[in-house]
Simulated scan of single mutants.
Amino acid sequence: MSCYQTLLDYGLRSIGIGERLLPKSDFTLCEHFVLIGSGFVWNFYFGIFALMFGFFLANAVAVAKASHNPWVRKPAEWFIFIFRGSPLFIQFFLAYESFVLLPRVGFDLPLGFTTITVETSWLTKAWLGALIVLTLNTAAYAGEIFYGALNSIPKGDIEAADAYGMSGWPRFRRVMWPTIMRLAWPGYTNEAIFLFQATTLVFFSGFPAFRQQGDALYYASYFSAKTFNPFMAYPVIAFYFILITLALTWIFGLVNKRLNRHLPQNLKARIRLRPQLIR
């Protein structure tokens, strides 16, 4: 089988398109790259959507933690403390067990003029349940990063906004939030890189894969178990993650330049690649 045919047969297998049966023996390097690359569709899915949803939630958590109202501040503080203080794998396990306890057929939500049934069985699937856990986890870490940037805003910026008559939402949107992003972006870049690497833990969680076709680590483990040689499959998955890290560093670097475009060259914060092996 040629490498092109392998790509056609297994390129989208992780989402149920293409050949359903995996190769049994005589694995080629092309099959390693194609099948593991196919599994990265799910890693991209988890990473991109968790990063997107977690970004907005992290901003809300950071603002809530900076609030003077204890009814707003305390829940944000405990949210950050719990999700930063417990291992991500334990969060996957507890979330799955909690979702399983929910009624599988859903529950009725009365709206007055009608009643709708909210589906809950989806929460036990990896595409939704694991995504929720990753979103909450990255929101806690990013929320603490944004909170630190919020406390580091120069007082002169806020005083200048007050002098122009800005207050409330206009001051936050036009003065405070851009400064928060500019100060927090290098640290948030590292959090984004770690989030994509943390998507491999979905394979070890209790959440079942889509049609038994999982992420990149699923296929790497399959090859390793069949060949008893981990030095072929796992370097391939590491190669893909290195490419993702380089892409994220480049994309976030462009955003960082945009955020700091008004500053002199010697004052601009640069994005540096700092691998985070464990946290």
Rank of each mutant, 00 (worst) to 15 (best):
L183T: 13
F107S: 03
L29A: 10
I244L: 13
T200K: 09
L94P: 01
S38Y: 15
G253R: 03
W250Q: 12
D162F: 10
T199F: 01
V236P: 02
Y188I: 06
W177V: 03
L101D: 01
L12Q: 07
G39D: 05
T115D: 14
R182T: 10
P275H: 10
F207E: 00
V175N: 03
W169K: 08
P170C: 04
P75A: 12
P154Q: 06
W169R: 09
L259I: 09
L57P: 00
L131F: 09
L273W: 10
R171T: 06
A192W: 01
L12A: 15
P75F: 10
C3L: 08
G148P: 07
I237T: 08
E97Y: 06
R104Y: 09
W169H: 07
D215P: 02
L246A: 05
I158Q: 13
L101N: 02
R261A: 15
F93D: 00
T6E: 06
I251N: 04
V236S: 03
L7G: 01
Q212V: 08
F172V: 01
K155F: 13
R279P: 04
G165T: 09
Y219S: 07
G206D: 05
Q276V: 14
P170T: 09
E19K: 13
Y218R: 08
G47H: 00
V255G: 04
Y240W: 10
R13V: 06
T120L: 14
E19H: 06
F56Q: 04
F92M: 01
L29T: 10
L128N: 03
M232W: 02
I36C: 04
F210K: 02
K65N: 07
V118Y: 10
G143S: 07
G206I: 00
T124K: 03
F231P: 00
L35I: 13
N260T: 13
C30Q: 05
L195M: 12
M181A: 11
S205L: 01
L136A: 15
L259G: 05
L259E: 09
F55A: 09
W78D: 05
L102G: 03
E31L: 02
W78F: 12
P103E: 11
G106T: 06
L183Q: 11
P208Y: 01
W250C: 10
P264Y: 13
T138L: 09
A233W: 03
A209P: 03
T135K: 01
A95R: 02
G253T: 03
Q5I: 03
V255Y: 07
G168I: 05
A198V: 03
F79A: 03
L123E: 05
V133N: 01
P70N: 05
L12R: 06
V63M: 09
N256Y: 01
G85K: 14
T114S: 14
C3H: 04
Y234I: 02
T115S: 15
Y96C: 00
L150N: 05
F241M: 12
R279N: 08
T117F: 02
A184N: 13
G187R: 02
